Amino acid sequence: MSPVYRGRFAPSPTGPLHFGSLVAAVGSYLDARTQGGEWLLRIEDVDTPRNVPGAAENIIATLAAFGFEWDGPVLWQSRRREAYAAALAQLQATGLAYGCTCSRKEIADSASRPAIDGGLAYPGTCRHGLPAGRSARAWRLRVGAAEIAFDDRLQGHVAQQLERDVGDFVLLRADGLFAYQLAVAVDDQFQGISDIVRGADLLASTPRQIWLQQCMGWPTPRYAHLPVASNAAGEKLSKQTLAPALQVGQAAAALVGALRFLGQAVPAELARASVAEVWAWAHVHWSFAAIPRQAAIPLATLP
């Protein structure tokens, strides 16, 4: 019988893991393990043009070297196109998904509202039918006027009016690739994920995933969005901001740093401990209540 709690860590292979990745991995791992739950590893490589050769294998090896232990085989999104196609077909059959001819330039020329996470909210140009003589380039999901709200375990009450804040969003892109929002919702359902612990940079996309779950008749997991680490310029640590890769030879120290970032009262002597000793301490002393309730923390402000 499966445990009540099932979490996951789902990196994209666009480069090596960095400190920000480690924070998300540590937070999700300890939340699962200290509740007697399973922790799964998923490689979110559905956006193939962004994948870096060898990055996925490097991520898996780095996680193993840092002492993470996941349950079951690794799930690869690039091998699950049939599952995404089946979900899209179900949404098409119910009329919730529709074809869209619009290019980015056309959307920019006709949109009047910014989207909540950058870009422009889709103005609904094609939701009542395609212009004469044109065929669909992408497929979008209809959104309603109702508010989508949830209570995040860290960030509190979150609410979005999707029609205003996002507009009908893409499920199948013009280049033939399935969009992140569809893939992640399908995979969370397939893997029976009960709890999603990830960075607050993904907070704004969560109502879209909840709407997808509702459209498909799937349960909604609990969410906890951890504070993300930012650099001196206030930018989230990422591959795009040239965050340095994790070094296996400094695994114990990096784990201690991630624990402290997450508000844990790590004793000074643990800085000289082994990876196994760090994890042993963390499993006993992990406190979810100690995690800062904010969306971002500049690394320069940490002690």
Score class of each variant (00 low, 15 high):
Asp47Leu: 07
His18Ile: 05
Thr48Glu: 15
Phe9Trp: 09
Thr301Gly: 01
Gln181Phe: 04
Ser103Lys: 05
Phe68Pro: 01
Leu171Gly: 01
Pro267Val: 09
Arg260Asp: 01
Ile297Gly: 01
Val186Ile: 05
Gly176Ser: 03
Gly257Arg: 13
Tyr98Gln: 00
Thr94Met: 05
Phe19Gln: 09
Cys100Met: 07
Ser110His: 14
Pro73Asp: 12
Leu177Glu: 08
Phe190Ser: 10
Glu38Ala: 15
Gly36Leu: 08
Pro49Asp: 07
Gln92Arg: 14
Pro292Gln: 12
Val158Leu: 10
Asp175Arg: 11
Ala56Thr: 01
Gln160Asp: 07
Glu269Arg: 14
Glu269Pro: 03
Trp211Ile: 02
Arg79Ser: 09
Ser2Thr: 15
Ala86Arg: 13
Cys126Thr: 06
Gln250Val: 05
Thr220Arg: 11
Trp279Ala: 08
Ala290Leu: 10
Ser2Tyr: 13
Pro114His: 12
Ala300Asp: 08
Ser194Gln: 08
Ala290His: 11
Ala55Val: 06
Arg80Met: 07
Phe19His: 11
Gly144Arg: 05
Ser274His: 07
Met1Asn: 11
Ala115Ile: 03
Gln161Phe: 10
Leu96Phe: 00
Val248Glu: 12
Ala273Cys: 09
Ala300Arg: 11
Phe178Met: 04
Arg127Pro: 00
Ser112Asn: 10
Ala10His: 02
Pro53Thr: 08
Ile107Asp: 04
Val46Trp: 02
Glu163Val: 11
Tyr84Asp: 00
Gly129Ser: 05
Ile116Met: 13
Arg140Val: 03
Val158Gln: 13
Val4Ile: 13
Val23Tyr: 03
Leu246Thr: 02
Ala136Pro: 00
Arg164Val: 14
Asp187Asn: 07
Leu22His: 02
Asp195Ile: 04
Arg222Met: 10
Leu96His: 06
Asn51His: 10
Gly72Trp: 03
Ala289Ile: 05
Asp195His: 15
Gln191His: 05
Leu203Asp: 00
Ala253Thr: 13
Ala149Asn: 02
Tyr29Gln: 07
Leu270Asn: 08
Ala64Leu: 06
Arg153Lys: 12
Trp39Met: 12
Gln161Leu: 10
Gly257Ala: 11
Met1Ala: 13
Ala25Leu: 09
Ser194Asp: 07
Ala97Pro: 00
Arg6Ala: 14
Asn231Trp: 10
Pro292Lys: 11
Ala253Trp: 06
Gly144Ile: 02
Arg198Ile: 01
Phe190Glu: 12
Gly124His: 04
Asp152Thr: 06
Thr48Pro: 01
Thr241Cys: 05
